[in-house]
Amino acid sequence: MEIAERRPLPLRLRRFRAGSLVPIVMLLAVLLVLIAVRQPNFLAPPSLLSFLGRSTPIILLAAGQYFVIVSGEFDLSVGSLVTAQVVVAARLIDSEPSRTWPVVALLLTFGILVGLINGLVTTRLRVPSFITTLGMFLILVGAVYLWSDGAPKGGLSEEFRRFGRRAFEDVPGLGRVQYALLVLLAVATAAVLLSRSDFGRTLVAVGGNPRTAELSGVRVWRAKTIAFVLSGLAAALAAILLGGYSGVSFQAGAGLEFAAITAVVLGGVALGGGRGSVFGAMLGALTLEMLFALLNFYGVSGALKSTVQGAIILLAVAVSSVRSTSR
């Protein structure tokens, strides 16, 4: 038959399967080239590693957010969770080194608990996760202000801060290797393995078609709740690193939820669920941070950060929906 196929979009956009890593890798390469032109020494191992260390919290959050988004939900509570964690840690530790490890354990539990509540409210009480986690966001912000009478109190111990600050010095060939990079390596490996496990694949199916999943014996509520718990846990880890890195303030986690969602979308994960990889989501986070670094080098105001994120979300979602409806 001689029916000319309609090509409403440039071929290039349609050739990649949704969720493919090619676009994000290409974007990352372009950014690297642009940076290399402007600021060549940024690409030397020491400064690149340091950049990677700084980006670790957002990469962790993107990994956590991936599991939630691919299952068809949202987690808007992670930014305020990070803030709450940092403020709580400072007050509880109160510069007393011996309290460091118990508080770390407490923070992890706190993250899991918030994820559990997000998950159960969304799946069992059938509150849309957008609302659930927005509510959790507001609850955490208010609770933290109340608990600390409007100004962060206490302080983190040196032990606590070293997670985000210290490094192995003078590693041959690399120079300074931050502890954060070990955390990143461990979490990234675990996240990729988890996303390829039966649970990970099932979660994608849940996001793709929850009815089919349910009728195939999947406990959809359970799978989604675990996804929220993973996101809460990622927020706890991010908070521990950030607390050491940037210190205690009510702004510690501000805006991180949107940064994480932007990163995930940038990494080719479909909002609404069912498509994408956790590796892509983490690359998306790295790309986003690199974009901000680049803007910084070109002297663009940091105030534009949220505008850039907003534009990326709109653009990425528009491209993917145009692509999927034009089939």
């Binding site: 099932t202 994608v204 199916a205 999943a213 195939s216 014996g217 498509r275």
Partner: peptide, 30 residues
């Protein structure tokens, strides 16, 4: 099911992922 698109398949997932859906749900593990 009679509603293949609505509750039989997961569009966007591969043939293999679709075929493994029930096995993974009931007997997960490495």
């Amino acid at each position: 099911t009679e509603d293949r698109k609505g509750e039989g398949i997961v569009a966007g997932l591969s043939v293999l992922d679709n075929a493994l859906l029930a096995s993974r749900a009931v007997r997960p593990g490495w």
